[in-house]
Amino acid sequence: MTNLVNTNINGDAVGFACEADETLLDALRNRVGLKGVKEGCGTGDCGACSVILDGTLVCSCLVLGMEVEGRTVETVEGLSNGAELHTLQSKFIEHAALQCGICTPGFLMAAKALLKNNPDPSEEEIRYALAGNLCRCTGYDKIVRAVQATAAELREA
């Protein structure tokens, strides 16, 4: 049975149809067309599908599409302000915090959620906050540095 879901995605009112057992990940990718949300495992282990739901970081593969009725969803597509990149996005490029880039949308959302709650995280706090997101290319070194640099810049702003 197909249901209609009304929600807010990246600041826009969005309606989409979805099956009762359809994940938010599939709905975002296949119904709404937000392909920046990536599937690496479908079981909540890799974090590539991370989105922010009502201010909380979630794996969209572990949330049903129908659960976002009346709520707000933030994805990587909504990070930048028009052509102006979010500081996290520019720092990730500057610090080469991505190689293949498949995990990048998830890391950006996880880092955004972290910095909202903790604007001055230690290296250890960053590493634990990002521990739910897998990256196989970088060894995380440059990702941690990009988040540190973002935090520093946002604190000054």
């Binding site: 890799c46 990002l130 060894g139 070194d141």
Partner: peptide, 17 residues
Amino acid sequence: AGFLDYRIPVCSDLPMI
């Protein structure tokens, strides 16, 4: 056959390299 039980290093497992 999954990342939960086949555990690759996560961010908190590693130091700067």
